[in-house]
Simulated assay, not measured.
Amino acid sequence: MTEEHRGADEGAVDDVLAALADPTRRRLLDLLAAQGEVTATTLAAGLPVSRQAVVKHLAVLDTAGLVSGRRVGREVRYTVRPTALNATARRLAALAADWDRRLAIVKRLAEAAERDPDGR
């Protein structure tokens, strides 16, 4: 993977994580996943925020690549786009695996030092 491509991937992951940092946006994503394609009005009915606030949150989720909206007559229907979330999950899994490897090395070194405190 080129450094430029890696940077673009990291930017996309950053966008997803920033979008998901807000509990209302996480709730919206959960509602969309459960209900399928729905309008902002339908989503707002299940939340303690206005329809306008829902639309603003959906715009952030859309920018992060987590949802998409399509116009049907006068309505915009939103749906989950899993690609960005899946890419973020893969990135976090890789990061966790890297830390697991590092911690395993530290554990081995600590156990070796415990067995031979003089380093022989």
Results as ranks from 00 to 15, higher is better:
residue 69 G to Y: 09
residue 38 V to H: 07
residue 20 L to M: 10
residue 72 V to D: 14
residue 108 R to Y: 04
residue 81 R to N: 07
residue 114 E to M: 05
residue 9 D to T: 08
residue 39 T to C: 05
residue 118 D to G: 04
residue 103 L to S: 05
residue 33 A to D: 12
residue 3 E to Q: 09
residue 82 P to D: 04
residue 75 E to K: 12
residue 31 L to Q: 10
residue 87 A to S: 10
residue 28 L to C: 09
residue 79 T to G: 15
residue 97 A to L: 09
residue 119 G to P: 03
residue 10 E to H: 13
residue 23 P to W: 05
residue 8 A to P: 00
residue 61 L to F: 11
residue 36 G to D: 10
residue 105 I to D: 15
residue 91 R to P: 00
residue 106 V to Q: 04
residue 78 Y to H: 14
residue 117 P to W: 12
residue 80 V to R: 07
residue 13 V to Q: 11
residue 22 D to G: 07
residue 72 V to F: 13
residue 26 R to A: 00
residue 22 D to R: 05
residue 52 Q to A: 14
residue 43 L to R: 05
residue 34 A to L: 10
residue 83 T to D: 15
residue 106 V to P: 02
residue 28 L to Y: 05
residue 95 L to S: 10
residue 55 V to K: 09
residue 49 V to A: 09
residue 59 A to C: 03
residue 70 R to K: 11
residue 73 G to Y: 14
residue 38 V to M: 06
residue 92 L to H: 00
residue 75 E to I: 00
residue 51 R to L: 01
residue 72 V to A: 15
residue 40 A to I: 00
residue 76 V to C: 05
residue 29 L to H: 06
residue 11 G to P: 01
residue 74 R to W: 12
residue 74 R to C: 01
residue 8 A to D: 08
residue 98 D to I: 00
residue 37 E to D: 13
residue 94 A to S: 14
residue 12 A to E: 14
residue 57 H to R: 08
residue 70 R to V: 07
residue 79 T to S: 15
residue 70 R to H: 15
